[in-house]
């Protein structure tokens, strides 16, 4: 996205360049923050865009970072893939300072990433984007039969679930037995 300044190096945050957002609102200079995902690529995001995320917004207000501090300490989101974080940042920038319409067409179309996106958005507490993602997930199964839903949403049957549980229990039992045997050996 053109509005997102993306760092290229993994170690240091990207050098902030003149952002188009700041040109749009010249009266108050906009503050920027930095986030990075699993791939350590740093994304520069304006404070206005980050307001969509209740988690990051809470972090910002609690930490009271200056721009320099923010640049030096990008928010790490190790559990979010880089490309997913990029999508989220793009979306936040696009919807900066305006309410999300009920039918949002600006969301990235890569539906194969939808599940990861839902997890990320839920973690970052971006309510509007989560609503839209959930709508997309719901659309995947609308009017489908239980078998089709199972296939699309990877839902195991109760029998499969029980079998997996039994297997897990067996494995846990074996591991526990191995541990007790090892402990007994150590004691001897």
């Amino acid at each position: 996205m053109s509005s997102t300044e993306q760092g290229t190096s993994s170690a240091a945050p990207a050098e902030p360049t003149t952002a188009p957002e700041s040109a749009a609102a010249p009266e108050v200079p906009e503050s920027f923050y930095y986030v990075h995902g699993k791939d350590k690529v740093v994304h520069k995001v304006s404070a206005g865009a980050l307001q969509h995320s209740a988690l990051i917004h809470g972090m910002i207000s609690n930490l009271g970072y200056t721009e320099e501090q923010a640049k030096a300490n990008p928010f790490p989101f190790e559990n979010i893939d880089g490309d997913i974080l990029q999508m989220v940042v793009d979306w936040c920038n696009q919807h900066k300072g305006k309410p999300t319409p009920p039918e949002d067409t600006n969301l990235p179309k890569q539906k194969e990433k939808l599940f990861d996106l839902v997890l990320a958005v839920n973690y970052l507490e971006i309510k509007e984007l989560l609503t839209y993602c959930c709508k997309q997930v719901a659309m995947m199964v609308k009017g489908k039969s239980p078998e089709e839903i199972r296939e699309i949403w990877m839902i195991p049957t109760d029998a499969e679930d029980e079998a997996a549980e039994k297997e897990a229990k067996k494995r846990a039992g074996k591991e526990a037995a191995g541990e007790t045997a090892a402990a007994a050996g150590d004691a001897k």
């Binding site: 539906k111 194969e112 939808l114 599940f115 839902v118 997930v137 995947m140 089709e148 296939e151 699309i152 949403w153 990877m154 839902i155 195991p156």
Partner: peptide, 9 residues
């Protein structure tokens, strides 16, 4: 299905 599955559980 054309979409990749969602891990619903």
């Amino acid at each position: 299905p054309s979409l990749d599955p969602i891990d619903w559980p």
